[in-house]
Every structure is written in C-alpha cells, then in structure tokens.
Nucleic acid binder design. Structure first.
Lengths: 186, 186
DNA sequence: ATGATTATTTATCATTTGTTAAAGGAAATC
DNA sequence: GATTTCCTTTAACAAATGATAAATAATCAT
C-alpha cells in the first residue's frame, strides 16, 4: 500500500492535526546524487519520497554500502538516530532527481503531546517500517544472493536505472557477484 | 538498558494506566523447549522475558532457523503478525526454563484509546525494537560470519548454554561453520 | 560528436561457507 | 551408572562469493 492510500485508510487525523502537520512540512527537490542528509549528522527529519529514488548509505572499509532504498511514497528515516537522538554514520542521497517531503522531527514529537491522532498516525507508519525491516532480516539471514536478487526484482518495480553497485551492496554482495548472478539468470 | 530501568526512565504511565495494564497481564512459566507460541498462529500476545531465554524460530527447507533471541528483560513479539493481524510462519519457544510476562495485544490496543500514556509507552518500546532490528541488518548485510559471532559474544552476556545450532542459524550460517569459526578463534 | 568518466561484464584465482559423514563429548532417561 | 540421545567437533570435498584485473558498454560534459 502506498503512503496516500494508507493515510486515507487510517483516516485518523483531525483537520487541526492536518493543519499543524502542514506547518512543519517542507517539500524539496534534489538533483541526481545530491546528498539529502550528511553522514555523521543526526536524523532530525522524517522524509517521504514524492517522486524519484533515494537511499540510505554508509561506508564500510572504504566501500559505499546501500542499506535502504526508498521509492515513490516510501517513508525514509535513519531510525537508529531518529529514535535515539544520537548521530549516525549513515547518510541519505538522492539516486536521481527526487522530490521529497520533509517533516521536522523535533516539531513532530512536540505535536504528539497536543495531537494524539498524529502520534498514532506515525506510530502506525513506523510499525509498518519495523515490519519491513524484520522481513529484510529473514531475507538476509538465510537466502542465497540469487534468491535475494530475484525477490528484490519481484517485489519492487523501481529497481531499474539504479546503479548495480547500489543494488549489490543492498543485497550484501559485490557488484561483480551480482553481475555474475544476472548472467546466470539469462 | 533493561526493561525496568527503561520503564522508570520514561515514567509516563499514570496509576490508572498501570492498573489497567496489570489487568491484561499474565505471568507464565515454560519448561525447557516448550512452545510458547505455535508456528502458524497470530501474534496476540506481547511478551517480556522475566527470567530465562526464549527464541523466535521458523523452518526453511526443513531446517530450524532462529530469527531472534530474547533474554532477561527483553521484549519478544512476532512483529510481522502483531502489526498486520496476519498469521506468521514463525513460532516462539523457551530455550530453557523461562518465566515470561504476557500482555494481550487486542486488549492493549484498546487501552491505547483510553490511555494515551500507554500508547506512548509501547510506541517507545517498539521504536527501540525497531532500532535493534536495523542494527541487525547492518550486521547481516556486510559482516563476515566470524565478525558477527564475535559481535554477538561481545554484546550479549546470555549466549552461554544456548545450543550451537540456534546461534549458528541466528548468525545465518550452519553449525558446522560456526564450530569451525570457534576453533579458529582459539 | 568526441573524449572522458563511470558502469557493467568477464575471467582467473583465493577464500569463505555449505554439505555430508563420521567420531568424540555431554547430557538426559531409565 | 549404563544406555541412549543429542550436541559439538573434525575432515574432505563442493559450491558460492570475494578480490583483482582487464575488456566492453553506457553515460556525461564540453
């Protein structure tokens, strides 16, 4: 389910809450490869991708690793920072020209006190993210690289045009390995 | 931080809320290897381990795979069912004699409407679980089996006495492989 | 369009992990 | 405490993936 269908289906935010939410919301455009959030920063913004593609990434032994992809209508946050207040060694980058909605988290968390329905809305949103993360573990824990790649292709329509190296590191393998797997699948 | 320090540090539940929570809470004892929640069931209970060790597990190609460990003071739920209402192919099992607190989730979710502070408490608890899950992905995605094993030993005091096969599958490797890694580490 | 840069494939060899089987240890049951 | 069952280690070989390098292919900037 995409974000907007979800918002409609939960349908719990009052007009006042919607108004308050809008006031802490910003839409921004990022060009291809532009950094949305720097590595080492604290996550103080909750993003929703309107159009385009973005990723969470970090460096391990000098290698650029994609931890997460976000496509149209996806939520994207660096949870390990947002929910702890600590800085994170991960960043967010636009993969291509991307329009993104940003909500300031400090302001949002303050709204939680006034608007129970906003707290509930975001609780439900993050519960969905949590479930997605659990499913990702299932995949990484005992599926082969080939299985993981096929699964990604099947569950995601947005993988086209994403550089192979990003897909490879997302799957936990090298790009050479992924290239081999693709050749194998022909 | 363990559960009880956390509960004290957030300190947001009113006496009425605590009273209401207690009424939907049950303490149970399970013997070694006893099934706490059957594979295929829906997750309708949120558990906290008081004493002992438990695990979430499932079968893949006939192999018993441990997806998650829970020790003293840990929360344990099958998120992919609790937050979707769907049945899950995972179960929960006591690894040894274990005392566990269970909270009925249907009742809990109803309490959310009456007691904002209960909803908040559990939102915060599950946010912490979500963060743990994200960290687990980092580990599975690009660390070697040996790194993952050393990390597990370093971050967890409760791994002793857990059968090697459970630890191995948790790390995403075979028990033979883990045995090799242990020999290597001597 | 052209040249420069970046992305992808292919090949070779090294390393890690899986598979199977067997043996040795530890623990539970009677 | 003997026996059975379960757990852990070791060994030998197979398969998957990593590392490095080189060759194509695609894209970008001027």
């Amino acid at each position: 389910m995409d974000l907007f269908s979800f918002l409609n289906s939960v349908n719990i935010t009052s007009p006042q809450a919607k108004e308050a939410l809008e006031q802490i919301t910003q839409v921004k455009s990022y060009s291809k490869n532009e950094i949305i959030q720097e590595i080492g920063s604290r996550c103080k913004t909750i993003y929703f991708v309107q159009e385009g593609r973005a990723r969470i990434f970090y460096y391990k032994n000098g290698n650029d690793i994609t931890e997460h992809f976000a496509f149209r209508n996806d939520l994207i946050v660096r949870a390990e920072s947002l929910f702890t207040g600590k800085p994170t060694s991960k960043g967010i980058q636009a993969i291509e020209q991307t329009n993104i909605v940003g909500i300031n988290s400090d302001s949002l968390f303050k709204l939680y006190d006034k608007h129970h329905d906003i707290e509930r809305l975001f609780r439900l949103l993050f519960e969905r993210e949590y479930v997605n993360t659990v499913k990702r573990i299932e995949s990484l824990q005992f599926k082969s690289a080939k299985e993981r790649y096929v699964e990604l292709l099947e569950t995601t329509n947005y993988v086209q045009k994403i550089p192979l190296k990003h897909i490879a590191s997302y799957l936990g393998i090298t790009q050479v390995s992924l290239s081999r797997i693709r050749a194998d699948l022909q």
